[in-house]
């Protein structure tokens, strides 16, 4: 599948944004994060920025962005529509919760209802993002039970790393946030590892013989493609990454996305480092994670092989 930069930016940025929203509201309601004004401004500011950046970026992927509002209508059948509805709705409770926190300095009832709703909606949005891909039977590498949990873990991991960094910058207790970041990173790493193992060991289930129905005569080979230059179908669905690059990129995704952030976050948690060193290390963890997430998401698309390629010369998919 063609890795569109707008979709990579959308899924990574909004994933981190919704992950941060979910963790901030949850930890504040549990009394772990103090509802201080400027801390709230920073946390909600970053979360809203990332979420909005992601959603705006996703509209750049559209051929007709001005009609994007129509995507709210088909939530009964479409995961993309569900994602749009919940993503947009999340602004309401999150905005109210931020209002109570930042303006009134109050997150106790009734403001806390908005907080719980924020947490719930943020998680649901990320789940829908994962299900958009997981529901596509045409792409075996996406049609996997691990895909939606993977998106959720990555959102918690990137949101946790971000929350840890902001709390360190404000010199507030960040050990619990750091612990959640570590748990999210470990969970995401494990899920991603299992995901890669799953797509590497799964044998292809569809063949050119099935696609054409000509298997009774023997092996099916492409003789003449229907057109001289790649068409939309080949440009969009025919993109595959060279094996050699996939291995290298997986290594970089693991290094930047998981190993470095885990090492840096553990370092800050385990050692009683100075404020300056804690900040530097948690900023490093976030920067590394951001690079790793972009590589991971690019690979998620590039390694996905669509069954339509069977009509264009692929033997199996």
């Amino acid at each position: 599948m063609h890795p569109a930069y707008s979709v990579i930016l959308f899924t990574t940025a909004s994933g981190a944004g919704y992950g941060l929203l979910a963790l901030v509201s949850l930890l504040a309601l549990l009394g772990v994060i103090p509802p201080e004004r400027w801390l709230g401004v920073a946390l909600f500011g970053i979360a809203f920025f990332l979420v909005t950046l992601g959603l705006l970026s996703s509209t750049f992927h559209l051929g007709r962005p001005e009609r994007a509002w129509r995507a709210f209508s088909q939530w009964r059948s479409s995961w993309l529509s569900r994602e749009g509805v919940i993503a947009a709705f999340t602004y309401i409770p999150a905005g109210l919760f931020a209002l109570g926190w930042v303006v009134f300095g109050n997150i106790s009832p009734p403001w806390n209802i908005a907080g719980w709703l924020t947490c719930l909606c943020a998680i649901a949005t990320v789940w829908c993002t994962g299900m958009i891909y997981a529901s596509l039977k045409t792409i075996p590498q996406w049609h996997q039970p691990l895909v939606a949990p993977l998106y959720l873990f990555l959102a918690v991991a990137s949101g946790g790393v971000l929350l840890n960094m902001v709390l360190r910058l404000f010199d507030r207790p960040a050990d619990i946030a750091g612990g959640i970041a570590l748990a999210g990173l470990a969970g995401a790493f494990l899920t991603k590892f299992l995901y890669w193992r799953s797509i590497d060991t799964a044998s292809d289930t569809h063949t050119a013989e099935q696609a054409t129905g000509l298997g009774t005569f023997g092996k099916v080979r492409q003789l003449e493609p229907p057109h001289s230059q790649p068409n939309y179908v080949m440009r969009e669905m025919g993109f595959t990454v060279a094996r050699k690059h996939a291995v290298r990129l997986r290594f970089l995704a693991v290094l930047f996305g998981f190993v470095l952030p885990i090492a840096a976050t553990t370092f800050v948690l385990a050692l009683d480092a100075s404020v300056g060193l804690s900040i530097a290390t948690s900023v490093l963890a976030f920067t590394s994670m951001a690079i790793g997430m972009i590589i991971e998401r690019w690979l998620f698309f590039a390694e996905a092989r669509h069954v339509v390629t069977l009509y264009y010369g692929a033997q199996t998919a």
Binding site: M1, H61, L62, G63, R64, P65, R67, A68, R70, A71, S78, L80, I132, L136, K137, T138, I139, A211, N231, Y232, V233, E236, M237, H306, V307, V308, Y311, Y312
Partner: peptide, 22 residues
Amino acid sequence: DTCIGCKLCSWACPYGAREYDY
């Protein structure tokens, strides 16, 4: 008149039947 050009339908079709008009 109401298609937003998100291309998801073309991802969902195994037969390559849908072509996006750039």
